[in-house]
Amino acid sequence: MNYINKCGNLLIDNLDLKNPEHKETRRGFGDALVELGKSNPNVVVLGGDVSGSVRTDLFRDAFPDRFFSVGISEQDMMGTAAGLALAGKIPIASTYGEFATGRPFDQIRQSIAYSQMNVKICASHCGFTVGPDGATHQSLEDVGIMRILPHMNVVTPVDYNQTYKAVTECVKSEHPFYIRFYRDNSPNYTNPDAPFEFGKADTLYEGTDCTIIASGLMVWESMLALELLAEEKISCRLINMHTIKPIDRNAIVQAAKDTDCIVTCEDHQKIGGLGGAVAEVLAQEYPAPVEFIGASDTFGESGKAVELYEKYGLSFRHIAEAVKRAVKRKK
């Protein structure tokens, strides 16, 4: 029997799990912006002094008239973006995850979410993987605080290719979006030609014993966990829940019905993020055992990303252990 069963064409052909191509998700954002700049004259970008870091410098250099520097003032950036939307523009506001959500929460709440402004907040440097910068810069709450806002869409693409697609697609909608990505190089493994639809989860692997529902970089970590679990004859479904809001309720409920237990994995607090969102759906529609991988109500610290994943329980080994716990809890 095969314990690892790839589904459809969602991953690139001949994927080498041991030695994948690496690319920055933030570069996927930056490259998508440049293409959008060419195809849509209404796309404008706001820079909060970190344009080289979040790769809006690519757009800035290509379309200087449509790039607005607002300095290190994230609250002002969100308001300015809302004002640009009122003037018919499609503003992309980008900075680091913590400063794109925590600092300007009230501005996003009133001027973007409540007012339903066509603003796309694109946050780089999210999660534990900014490692050495330490807890102040490790955005572990951003998905939660964006998810609780009515009208806000929350998307967490997994790699360069999917970040490119998410950014390209989001400007076709008139609704506010929060798109979360990362600083570091990470495996680039999703098929650039596969369809991408907000709110429709990607089932990457089919399995029978448990379902892993993961977001962002943790999808790759989960793929590594599948290998470990196969050695122990455990077969898992793996879902890339790239859209946290609106969440794919059907995919979650079907997974609970088919495999009777769930593990959620995110580079974020367990509280309020993907894990919370999945648990909310299951509690209402099909209660099943859930194990959570993520930050356990704690801030991070300085260290290498791989060290932090190990210390805070986010590595593929932790995921495999969580799956075994979940399987044991099945009735």
Binding site: V44, D65, R66, F68, Q75, D76, M77, M78, G79, T80, A81, A82, G83, L84, A85, L86, A87, G88, K89, P91, D106, Q107, Q110, S111
Partner: peptide, 17 residues
């Protein structure tokens, strides 16, 4: 405290056009 940022954004958009 939020109105002026919005006004500036709209003013920028109008100027762009």
């Amino acid at each position: 405290g939020q109105g002026l940022s919005i006004a500036v954004g709209t003013a920028l958009g109008l100027k762009l056009d």
